[in-house]
Each structure stands twice: as C-alpha cells, then as structure tokens.
Amino acid sequence: MTAILLERLTKFYGKARGVLDLDLEVAEGEVFGFLGPNGAGKTTTIRTLLDLIRPTSGSATVLGLDSRRDSVAIRARVGYLPGELSLWETMTTRQVLDHLGSLRRGIDPAYRDELLERFDVEPDRKIKDLSTGNKQKVGIIQAFMHRPEVLILDEPTVGLDPLMQQVTYEVIEEAQRAGHTVFLSSHVLPEVERIARRVGIIRSGKLIEVESVENLKERAVKLIEIRFGFPAPRAENLAGIPGVTDVYVSGDVVQLKVGGSMDPLVKALVPYEVLSIRTHETPLEEIFLELYRNGNDAN
C-alpha cells in the first residue's frame, strides 16, 4: 500500500515558488530520503502533508487519506519533527511530552522512557535551559513516542553530535523493522544513504530525480585525490579518461572528479606508481552538478 502520494503537488506563497508539480509515491514500510539544497522545497512539501499549509493545486495523501479532508486522521497516525523545532520554553521536557501525548489518543510510556534514556535526556529540566541539540532530541522523542505508522522528519539530525545521530539512525531502523514508513529530509547524502533505500532529489521546487541509493551512488561524481610516486602523469593524460573531469595537478598530488564507474580511471593508472588514493564523501552539490550536465534540471 502507498504511505505517501503526491500528485502534481504545487505550492506558491503568493507569487513566490514553493514547490512545482511534485509527483511522488512512497510505499508503506519504506525509508525515503528527501534531498535538496536550501530553499528547494523540502519543508514546504512536508508541511503540506500535515495540512499546516495548503496546496495551491494538486494533492497529497498519507495512508490513503487526503491532506485537506482527513487531516486530523492523518495527524493521528503520523509522528512529525518540524524542520525548525520550537518547544514551549517555560515547560519541562516531561511536561512537553505529556502535553503532546495527551493531544493524541495516548503514547507508549515505556517506549518514551526508553527513548529518554537512549537519547540521554534529563526530563525535568526546562526547555529554555537545554542546548540546541538537546532540544532536537526532545523533538525526535515526541515524534517517535507513540510509535506512529508514518514518521515525517524534517532534517532530524541537525544539531546532533555523532553519537546522537547514531541513536537517531537506530531508532529509525527499528521503526522500519516494525513496518513503519519514514520520510525524512536532509541536505547531506551520506546521512540519507545510511538509512534510506530510495531518495528523491528536489531543487528549485522541482523533483528532479527519484532513485535508489545504490544507483545514485553509482552515478554520483566522486572527488578523488591521488598521490603518485615519480613520475606523476600529466593532467592532459588523465583528462582524457572517460568520466574524469576537473583534473588539478599540484606536484605529485592530483585531484580529479569521476562520474559513474571508477573502472576506466583505475585501469589508466596501472602504468604509474600510486602511493595513495583518497576518495571524499560525495557532497550533494556534486550530484546536482552531474544532474545538470545530464540536462535533467529544467531550471
């Protein structure tokens, strides 16, 4: 069954573009990553799903329920983490969680306590006394504590230290194992490729790619740094290799970008003495660059 379905979803803020003609289907039980640079339209899409904002045209459904007509039913079955989380400053974590729990039919108190423990949150401190990361943890806990069928998380790991990012990924994986759907937005590919099976890439309000993580990584441009023993190859020798671009030679160190398969490059390096090869995690922008070249972005 379909967990989330967008059909020609369009949102304008007055004249300002939010998102344009989004078509997307996320299956139940799937972890879906929604990737895009700042201002791409991730938050706009997510807030439409919860009926916080209304589409200009097109539609969004969650678990087969229409985002406008059945919004209360949707919100009863969804856990939501806002992209810019704000909690009531004068309340304690415990009071916030109790309040939010009472706004729905109830939560799983044992699971809430477990989450408090795993995220190392002290529940009796006031929100205003918490650090940004600790507030974010409270936001994550409230999204998960009622074990919702669908989790909609807008940049969940922003502000978290690596350890807590790890806990977040684990909790997401557990939700998936329980058959729940996770829809999360992010700027960074490494995070999404860890936990999501499929990603959608949005840019300037348009969905320019929906792809499995594997395929995307295949095609992604990788930034590579090679140290050669003497003699290093000349830039023009490397630039001719299929998929290789942006070659930059500095002494015995060569930096270059490879799109798609690494095979032609590796084969071409055989005659040379290679001391080390370092590959860098692909920044999201690089994927966009590649999509640009392929002419997929109408922008």
Partner: peptide
Amino acid sequence: DGTLDLALAHPVT
C-alpha cells in the same frame, strides 16, 4: 515562536 507547528501537527482541529 513556531510552537504552533508542533501543536497543530497533532490530531487537533
């Protein structure tokens, strides 16, 4: 403040 977002993401009309 933005706290409205969270409150109204719950099943409240």
